[in-house]
Design a protein around this nucleic acid. Structure first.
Lengths: 356, 356
DNA sequence: TTGAAAGCGATACCAC
DNA sequence: GTGGTATCGCTTTCAA
């Protein structure tokens, strides 16, 4: 049994007001910064609140005001792999910062993807959030019209290609980032670049693919479709994808990978073939926290996640709070991806064969 | 402006009861499964609730009952590095599963470590959670007596060495896991094993250190203290730690690393020296999702995180809900770490020098 | 500038 | 079995 389970409950407005021989009204007004209370009583009240550790009961307040002062995040986990997208942690951390600053709570709802719709409806019906952040949008994502219909303010982390809906979003420029990364590899002389991407219906994967294609088109090249793979971004997937590609008679000379976790698997597959990164093979990864260069910049790291995802979280939270307050700020925010690439000073890579 | 901001609000108990020409009392009772309502009216009421999409307003309910049906998680982010511990995502996912099943909400509070105490007090004062999960316990963690004093039920994810408090916890057996991993490397013939560990005051790091020491002691060996490093588990840290160790005249022949992210840096340092993993050097990492073997098991992966952290999250949530309900289940749970190690069939490694 | 009183939307006690 | 009503702790008119 917990030792202090039945500790005296925290003080409430009535008790505080009686203590001060004032009405609840006055105390409430003083604490909420209403102008019509005299400065003298205000500081007296604030001091008393401080001393007795008074804080308003949020449930009661939100019942009275109709606002909940809380934002909901629905975190979808793949029913198959029980996988949590690792960017959530950083995004949520960024958003959480903003919520804290503005006195909002963050509600997380972890659901398998088949129960997501129910989760949104529940948020609405139970009335415990003022707004929602939508994670992991897909092509023509049905959740967007659903949320518009439900009538709960929301902001999408990412966008949804092919959607005709009007909605607020915060996204990083995936297309441009992957276009630049691809161009960098092309400049190094690579002609067989593998793209290991997220699931094909995920919007971010679609946009990264676009950038990949655009860079090739820009050079009058057509990427080999058999070098472009999509899957759930696990280490295992990266290992198996890279392994099969490296086993081909015409293996790629470079990899562009959509996730740091997956990159670990790709590297492992390269190691298995005794390929030395930066000499025999180049790997560029998304979602990393630092950049480094080796051998005249043959290996570069595309830096995006940790800080920029966090930044996206902050911006999304700001946009949502503004919407809830009926503000007039921007509703669509495109963040440039942080991108650090080395100069192509090294010699052009030569295709290598795996040496079994 | 959001198109549906002023959508009609969801139905409430009063409306539903009027619709059915019944009292609010009866409707409430029927929906909450009280026995004294006739089966006929119960199904009529349930059907109506279903049709009209009625769900109780949680704020009102919790005001009336005194229970909030919500659990708070305080996520500390390092003020210095703005780092989110990557295990949170998986832990929170596991806990979230259990909360959903039990109709509880999860409240996340993201705070820099200097504001943690305030966050706990706020949870108590604002009365918006029934209980708390404490993350990232340290040696003699002051938050544990604080929470006991505050009087909010809580469960610690991990333990706190040197704490004399009585508290509930769910932990994985870090000591045993690292003892076994170390013994595995010793069996392979390694005598200079580096330990790259988390910050020295973190409880998990202390226990892993113990296991490392115990395995050595078991063989009558004493680990070289200069091979044991502690720091915040970033990739950069792993890179720099491994780099400096490999630059020594007597470099380690194996690494035992406390985090997958950090391992990426260690591998990078090994690559820089043109060391081939599993041939020139062995690396065992914590926090990974799969195990693999190379060259007669010289490289093994210590599998722990993704699934076992998630499992810890589930268990912790169960323990906490039980405490809140005044149940009599276990209050301390020690989970065995999932651990897969290869047999040491390969030849004993020979110490290598970094070249260049 | 301050206070009394009416909600907000549920639960739960007490009659019938 | 069913219904009236006080209650939870706050905000917010409306009066004074």
């Amino acid at each position: 049994m917990h030792p202090n389970r039945f500790e005296k409950p925290a003080m409430n407005l009535k008790q505080l007001s009686e203590l001060l021989s004032l009405s609840q009204t006055t105390v409430s007004r003083a604490l909420n910064g209403y102008p019509e209370v005299s400065e003298a009583t205000r500081i007296r009240i604030q001091a008393a609140a401080q001393v007795h550790g008074y804080a308003p009961n949020m449930r009661a307040r939100s019942l009275a005001t109709g606002r909940t002062q809380a934002i909901g995040h629905v975190i979808p986990v793949s029913a198959k792999h029980e996988m949590v997208n690792p960017v959530f942690a950083d995004f949520v951390a960024g958003a959480g910062e903003i919520y804290s600053k503005n006195g909002h709570d963050m509600l997380l709802s972890v659901v398998t993807d088949d129960q997501e719709e129910a989760a949104y409806r529940a948020f609405k019906a139970k009335r415990n959030v003022d707004g929602i952040i939508l994670h992991g949008p897909r092509r023509g994502d049905p959740r967007i019209p659903l949320l518009n219909q439900i009538g709960l303010p929301f902001v999408v982390h990412g966008r949804s290609s092919d959607s005709t809906e009007d909605y607020a979003w915060v996204d990083v420029n995936n297309t441009q980032a992957f276009e630049r990364a691809t161009r960098f590899l092309l400049d190094l002389g690579h002609r067989r670049i593998a793209l290991i991407n997220g699931l094909a219906h995920m919007d971010f994967a679609i946009r990264r693919q676009c950038g990949f294609d655009a860079a090739h088109a820009d050079r009058g090249l057509t990427p080999d479709p058999t070098l472009m793979l999509s899957g759930e971004m696990t280490e295992t997937y990266g290992f198996e994808a890279a392994r099969s590609l490296l086993a081909r008679p015409d293996p790629p000379t470079a990899f562009l990978v959509s996730s740091m976790i997956t990159t670990i698997g790709v590297r492992r597959a390269a190691e298995e073939r005794r390929l030395t990164l930066g000499r025999d093979i180049s790997v560029i990864t998304h979602d990393d926290e630092l950049s480094y260069f080796r051998n005249g910049a043959e290996v570069a790291l595309y830096t995006a996640t940790r800080s920029s995802v966090r930044q996206a979280g902050r911006r999304a939270a700001e946009v949502l709070l503004d919407i809830i307050r009926g503000g007039t700020g921007p509703r669509q925010v495109l963040l440039e991806a942080e991108l650090t690439l080395g100069q192509s000073t090294g010699p052009a890579p030569t295709p290598v064969r795996g040496r079994s």
